[in-house]
């Protein structure tokens, strides 16, 4: 497919990049959030080149002394842990893990949620009944304990953490997309598409999907934010992947070290990053909320 044809079909699906930047740029906070996310993404992409040390490398300062529990300084910008690990390097490398888990589980969960929502909403009847009862069952599960049990069952590996998050996080998006699908299904242009001979799948994916897209992107951002929080919580409780460093894992190590009251920098750096990234995602999603629900738009 030529680049031109590609951009045309993306645009038809409502995925034109320019339009989306336009949507984000309408709101100053969303724009700020967008650039913060871009920054984190760049850090994640180039993490091994940015980080000066290995995450679990015991360091000695320029005078040759063991660099344990150092407050931020020129040499160790974000300080060190009680075992002399460089928090700056840990943070940079953890960004990669956190973003990977967040983006992957956010992306997979929105695809599952959107499809279940579209299919349940469009077909209605028994299909809807079965899919929505399934969603209800997931709603009945307490979030964190469920994920912890899953990870305990599967093992503390990155892909299982993602799987566990995905398995539960799609529920909200499925419900919301279903409601929106039902509303759009009743609009006349859907009747028109059917009268013109469009098949069910064509109606769902060509006619309805672009109309739920703003909502979809809104919930994609939410799902990513939720995944990041969930991963951090699970890791903090010791249910993250022990082999890779993550923001939640850094907090877990702080907890294990028993230095919480002493090493404010150890506590501050991952926490600020979590808050900053999640808030940025929420800010970006706000721009889509205005598109998805025009009533929120300022008059």
């Amino acid at each position: 497919m030529s680049a031109n044809a590609m951009s045309r079909s993306l645009r038809k699906l409502g995925l034109g990049l320019k339009e989306h930047y336009g949507i984000i740029a309408t709101n100053k906070l969303s724009l700020l959030g967008f650039w913060i996310i871009v920054l984190f993404t760049l850090v994640a992409a180039f993490a091994p080149w940015i980080a000066p040390h290995e995450p679990w490398e015991m360091l000695f300062d320029s005078k040759g002394e063991f660099a344990a529990l150092r407050a931020p300084s020129w040499e160790f910008p974000f300080g060190t842990t009680h075992l002399g690990y460089d928090l700056y390097s840990q943070l940079v490398l953890a960004t990669r893990t956190t973003l990977l888990i967040g983006a992957t589980s956010g992306f997979i969960s929105i695809i599952i949620g959107a499809n279940i929502g579209l299919i349940a909403g469009y077909y209605g009847g028994k299909v809807d009944e079965v899919l929505m009862r399934l969603t209800d069952i997931l709603y009945g599960m307490p979030f964190l304990p469920f994920i912890i049990i899953l990870i305990a069952l599967f093992g503390r590996k990155l892909e299982f953490v993602i799987l566990a998050i995905v398995l539960i996080i799609w529920r909200t998006s499925a419900r919301v997309i279903r409601a929106q699908t039902i509303a759009i299904k009743q609009r006349q242009f859907i009747a028109m598409a059917r009268a013109r001979g469009a098949s069910d799948l064509r109606i769902i994916y060509v006619h309805i999907l672009p109309n739920v897209l703003p909502l979809l992107l809104l919930y994609a951002a939410f799902n990513i934010a939720w995944s990041i929080i969930t991963e951090a919580s699970a890791s903090f409780l010791g249910f993250g992947d022990g082999e890779t460093i993550s923001w939640g894992g850094m907090l877990y190590e702080l907890w294990l070290s028993g230095k919480t009251r002493v090493a404010w920098w150890w506590f501050a750096t991952p926490s600020v990053c979590i808050i900053l990234l999640v808030t940025s995602l929420v800010f970006v999603s706000r721009a889509y909320e205005e598109v998805a629900n025009p009533r929120l738009r300022k008059r």
């Binding site: 609009r187 242009f189 098949s199």
Partner: peptide, 23 residues
């Protein structure tokens, strides 16, 4: 309803071409 019967996210040419494309 001419306000409701056209898919708001389609361009005019695509709306008109939709029937032939679907079939």
């Amino acid at each position: 309803d001419p306000y409701e019967s056209l898919n708001p996210r389609f361009r005019i040419a695509d709306i008109v071409a939709e029937g032939p494309r679907a079939l």
